[in-house]
Computed example of a mutant assay.
Amino acid sequence: MAILAAVALSGKVFDRSFPRAESTLTVPHTVLDGRYELRREDSATTGRTMAGTWRSSLDAEAAHGVVASYRRKGADYDDVVVTGMYGRFRNTASLRARLLAERGSTASPVKVVAPPRDLTPASSPVRVSCEYLSRSWTDGQALTYPACAWADGNTLARVAYMTTSYVDLKDAAEQTLRVRSDMLRPIR
């Protein structure tokens, strides 16, 4: 009872209903106009673990994890890594923020370089937030890269652009919506 009173006094409004299940995330062989090919799918392992963690969330129901890594055709290192879920989700703004905040422990080799910003293209009904991250390895190498996230009523994902080429956050947001379009399938 005290928790409910605290939430009510905080002024936060929580959506209590879950949307109808209308779409799912798949792992196609290619994304982004066929320029990136599937390199590795970890949905059965990492995806299952991730979904198990999110099942305890009050904002997720019937969650299934999808984890895939795509590599640009002909490149040695230019990856698009998708970590997402499909199911039924509510309070999508807070879920989108949670996706970007999940980088492991404070000892993680991944650090925030530029905090998340809403960079939703004007034509999109789905909100997208992006940030710049930096990852370092024990051999001294480091990489700064963009990561974006979306969350709608049925799908959510973080898309990391692990490339040595500079990617503008606005471009990353637009590419994220294209990745979403490539992976989204209606439930029939």
Rank of each mutant, 00 (worst) to 15 (best):
M1N: 12
M1P: 13
A2I: 14
I3R: 14
A5N: 08
L9S: 05
L25E: 07
H29G: 05
D33F: 04
R35S: 13
E37N: 13
R39F: 05
A44D: 12
G47L: 12
G47S: 13
R48Q: 08
T49L: 15
M50V: 14
W54M: 13
W54G: 04
L58V: 12
A62C: 11
S69R: 14
Y70R: 10
R71M: 06
R71T: 10
R71D: 07
K73A: 05
V80D: 01
V80S: 01
T83F: 02
M85L: 14
Y86H: 14
F89I: 15
N91I: 14
T92D: 09
S94I: 14
S105V: 11
T106P: 00
S108G: 03
V110P: 01
K111P: 00
P115Q: 14
P116H: 07
P116R: 03
R117Y: 10
S124W: 08
P125W: 04
V128A: 04
V128Y: 00
T144I: 10
Y145V: 05
C148P: 02
D152H: 02
G153R: 01
T155W: 00
A157V: 02
A160L: 04
M162P: 04
D171V: 00
A173V: 13
D182K: 07
R185S: 14
P186Y: 02
R188K: 15
